[in-house]
Write a protein that binds this DNA or RNA. Structure first.
Length: 285
DNA sequence: AGCATTTGACCTGC
DNA sequence: GCAGGTCAAATGCT
């Protein structure tokens, strides 16, 4: 797991630092912009939106580098685990040897880079595959586990956990862990307009929801994987920003209403949520 | 038949 | 030892 070559680690570190420094500079510019909105502007001065996009891009790049480094380590771990018990000298605890059955054999990820979101649906702009569900102690509702549908073909490490909120069973608490390193996983990005209420994009639209989709609050396992390769709303229409991974975060800036009950919740993970502009995205390494 | 979901097994971290 | 997270066989659905 720690067998990365020093050159590789160093290059990654430099890259991360470069991205973060750039992000910090943009944040400083943004701060100045807020402090002095009517200050001197010329055509070369980036707008607040551009600065936000740059900052998020910096974070995304840094995360991408970090996660790819982790992935390297994981490959090593897997290759070690793939050795048979005889080869590794490990005596299996399981009674039936069935070397094929590797259920539960995994590297538990750290709770790094987590974000939480509360919404009326467990769906979002990404495609997810459910891989597990667990009853949680002292919780009425089970927790569902989802991974990115691109996990296998693109090695995307993004996962999310969804659980109904006891105090408000119509609402879902979603914990996103990791960031999407995949491409083309965005379902059907929709422009969030000024008039657009947050529910309008959290809820499935007529065009992308199945006809009988009214079970979102009643079924414990609503439709998760829905392949609607809708490409008629290119991200470039939304902004000049090119990184699709950024937009969930930008859209989350719009979130504020569903979070009133948050102080009643006791999350088990380090988290922060979207009160306004700068609390939703929480990164932790 | 192929793919997605369910569910029990089993591993990790505390 | 326990709770939670992940895996993969079994099952269901299209």
């Amino acid at each position: 797991m720690s067998a990365l070559c020093p050159e590789h680690v160093s290059a990654n570190k430099e890259s991360i630092i470069r991205e973060l420094v750039e992000g910090k500079e943009c944040a400083s510019q943004l701060k100045l912009l807020f402090q002095n909105p009517s200050g001197p502007h010329d055509t070369t001065t980036p707008s607040a939106q551009q600065l936000v996009a740059k900052i998020l891009r910096s974070f995304a790049q840094s995360i991408s580098v970090l996660t790819s480094s982790e992935a390297d380590g994981e490959i090593l771990a897997i290759s070690c685990n793939d050795r048979s018990p005889e080869e590794s000298g490990e005596s299996s605890k399981r009674s039936p040897p069935s070397a094929k059955d590797r259920r539960g054999c995994y590297n538990r990820r750290k709770a790094a880079d987590t974000r939480t979101k509360i919404s009326q649906t467990m769906e979002d702009e990404y495609e997810w595959r459910k891989y597990g569900q667990k009853e949680i102690l002292n919780s009425k509702f089970p927790r569902s586990y989802f991974r990115c549908t691109r996990k296998h073909d693109q090695g995307c490490k993004a996962v999310k956990q969804v659980q109904r909120i006891e105090e408000n069973p119509e609402m879902f608490l979603t914990i996103y862990i990791g960031v999407h390193t995949c491409k083309d996983n965005l379902k059907a990005p929709e422009m969030v307009t000024d008039s657009g209420h947050w529910e309008s994009y959290l809820a499935p639209t007529e065009s992308n929801k199945p006809p009988d989709d009214d079970q979102k609050a009643s079924s414990s396992t609503p439709t998760v994987k829905q392949e609607y390769p809708k490409e008629d709303t290119p991200l470039s229409e939304i902004t000049d920003n090119s990184d699709p991974n950024l937009w969930p975060d930008l859209k989350d800036f719009e979130l504020s209403e569903p979070l009133k009950m948050l102080d009643k919740l006791d999350f088990g993970v380090d988290q922060s949520v979207g009160f306004g502009t700068d609390h939703y995205l929480h990164l932790e390494y």
